[in-house]
């Protein structure tokens, strides 16, 4: 028999235990990405000396590197020196228990910072020049303007895209099985290693990712409508239509 639903269930029940790992691999990068990505985007918007020109060169370059390469590069950059150090000091136990999950989180975080800095840049650009001028005309400094007016207005614009970014990160995080991190994808495959039911394992993993992404999408829609309603007072029936 080519397809047996029973094996999907087996895979599914095993993989479901690794949902926290997948969430850690996507939510921590999202969080770090929002903080550092926003900082980079703001530096570029305000043309801060040294930082802005550097980011102008670095971000487009880093945007062009696939996630899987970040993973491998970080794996070698972090793991190999650490391994050598551990051998030198005979930390055999530490290296045995050092979780590759952290390498996955670091690699995906770098990727997330790059893409979210672009998301935030476009969100900042959606706020017109007039808003800045109005802030300056009432005597705010540009940081006050940013904090009080520009960021609160760019957030509702950024949220739907951040939701897409998070979904991309959740799905993208599945490549960490390549450096032997146990996430949903790898967890589903563990059963297939025993019973050779790979198709069923992939389908089980697909179901879990689909479920997580659906939930994410829904949560971000709720958040988006909430910010629009309470920050911009857009009427309920106009929520999805109108942006600013």
């Amino acid at each position: 028999m080519i397809f047996d639903f029973q094996y999907v269930v087996t895979s599914f029940t095993t993989a479901i235990h690794y949902i926290p790992a997948t969430l850690a691999l996507s939510l921590i990068p999202l969080f770090l990405g929002i903080i550092f990505g926003t900082m980079i985007a703001v530096c570029r918007r305000f043309r801060i000396k040294f930082v802005a020109p550097l980011a102008d060169i670095a971000i487009p370059v880093m945007k062009g590197i696939p996630l899987v390469l970040y993973l491998f590069i970080m794996n070698f950059l972090i793991f190999k020196p650490f391994d050598m150090l551990a051998q030198y000091y005979a930390w055999a136990d530490i290296i045995r228990y050092m979780d590759k999950l952290y390498i996955g989180i670091i690699a995906i975080s770098i990727y997330a910072i790059v893409i979210i800095s672009e998301t935030m840049r476009s969100a900042l650009m959606s706020v017109g020049k007039g808003q800045y001028e109005a802030c300056y005309s009432v005597g705010l400094t540009r940081w006050q303007a940013l904090w009080r007016v520009i960021l609160p207005q760019s957030l509702p614009v950024a949220i739907p895209v951040l939701g897409n970014n998070l979904i991309g990160l959740i799905k993208g995080s599945s490549v960490v099985y390549l450096i032997t991190v146990l996430d949903v994808m790898n967890g589903a495959l563990t059963t297939a290693q025993i019973n050779y039911r790979f198709l069923e394992a992939y389908i089980a993993a697909a179901f879990i990712y689909w479920g997580i992404c659906l939930l994410t999408e829904w949560l971000f829609t709720v958040w988006e409508n909430h910010t629009k309603k309470y920050q911009m007072r857009i009427d309920k029936h106009n929520l999805r239509k109108e942006v600013l």
Partner: peptide
């Protein structure tokens, strides 16, 4: 300054708009 296209702060109500320069600035 009073602008041609008003440039009120879209994320604040009328009172907050007027207060902003006093409180924050």
């Amino acid at each position: 300054m009073v602008f041609q296209n008003y440039n009120l702060f879209n994320n604040m109500n009328a009172l907050e708009n007027v207060m902003e320069g006093l409180v924050t600035g």
